[in-house]
Design a binder for these strands. Structure first.
Lengths: 211, 211
DNA sequence: CGCAGAGTTGAGATAACTCAATGTCGGTGG
DNA sequence: CCACCGACATTGAGTTATCTCAACTCTGCG
């Protein structure tokens, strides 16, 4: 259910999860009441992984929409590691893919200004969920986020996200409202977000695994 | 050798690396000539991993000090995955540990102001390289960085890093110069950086693997 | 000697933040 | 049925953290 916590920080951790449908946000809560969303989890991706030996979850997973997922014991993973090559291989793939997403988020938050930062986040989610890249101008993608979540994920304030979205629309890049992203001009959007060959290569590689 | 690139973005990727000694920075280069340092690699950690199927490295690794490392073919990893449980398990451990570091970096860059951001980066590196946590007041830790690298890693400008370091010293948190971090007051430092139970738990868990 | 890389400091510009008010919509209780 | 309330979105005005530009020092090195 939307708003539900699938697991909480500091809960004893013996399981990891594979999302089957819906959207999940994984975040770290801070003392001042704010939070940093570390990643949005899309169907087919794993979450809740902790370093081997860690006893607690280091962050919290919140269901953004209605979700279904399956929980796997870490035990099983270790047991299957050898018996079932396919399973371990797939697990490693998913970890590596998550890692790539995290690296891009780091560059996004560390280097981009608000305009391209918000644009990149929305693009990335659209690419990951649709498998399209480049995104197609005029097309709409369903991203069930509210502005608060964009703020928590980008490190900006909600108010600034609001102004930024207004600007992205008025300058003809994209339109986002009511959980729907409409691409106004895919080529311009690409240029806005282009900060090195890395950005495009990354999006290209994210599209490949359309689960 | 300092300044050498161990691998470059977009180089064909068939190997990953295990650092034996020295310090390595992994970064993404941007169009405007700046870069985002994604991670500092310490001895015992792996770098150069790409998602299975990717043909290129998605970032660049630069030796900061004299380094020694060994290169492993990805092939070997896949081949050993089943034959040699220990190897695959260790590989997964390292991936998971890297993931934890990345998550903390994301929160660091997304949520902290310059003062605590720089402080956290230095603390994290000291904890990871020494295995001490909490750090001990009055003790010095060797971190062969220049201000430029701190800037590239935190998403700040060199000039602001400089002012921030001055402030950290004058306010009695820490002193950093000539590649040496001196902890002035470990407890205050901890409080400065404390943005949720997460921060301490994370540092605690990073210390555990002193290679 | 002179030059390059690193660090430092000052002054002014600007992106993003804070505080405060207001609008819209859907749900809920009287 | 209407009034109220809470979540979300929007807008304005003033503040502040960080950036930019520019000058200057120090050190090591060819």
């Amino acid at each position: 259910m939307p708003g539900n916590y699938i697991f909480d920080e500091f809960v004893f951790s013996k399981e990891f999860f594979i999302l089957k449908s819906g959207l999940v946000a994984v975040f770290q809560a801070l003392n001042d009441g704010s939070r940093q969303i570390l990643r949005f989890v899309l169907p087919g991706e794993i979450f809740g992984i902790e370093p081997t030996g860690a006893v607690h979850h280091s962050n919290t997973a919140e269901a953004i929409t209605v979700t279904s997922y399956c929980a796997q014991s870490i035990e099983i993973l270790h047991r299957f590691q050898c018996e079932n090559t396919g399973f371990a291989t797939r697990y490693i793939n998913l970890l590596e893919r998550e890692r790539l997403i995290l690296l891009n988020s780091l560059t996004n938050i560390g280097r981009r200004d608000a305009l391209s930062r918000v644009a990149y986040l929305l693009m990335e989610l659209a690419v990951r969920s649709s498998g399209d890249y480049p995104l197609v101008s005029g097309h709409s993608y369903r991203l069930p986020l509210v502005q608060r979540m964009i703020a928590d994920a980008t490190g900006l304030t909600v108010i600034h996200v609001n102004r930024t979205l207004t600007k992205l629309r008025s300058e003809g890049y994209l339109d986002f409202h009511d959980g729907k992203l409409t691409v106004l001009n895919s080529a311009r959007l690409d240029r806005l977000v282009d900060l090195g060959q890395g950005a495009h290569a990354a999006l290209e590689s994210l599209k490949s695994e359309g689960y």
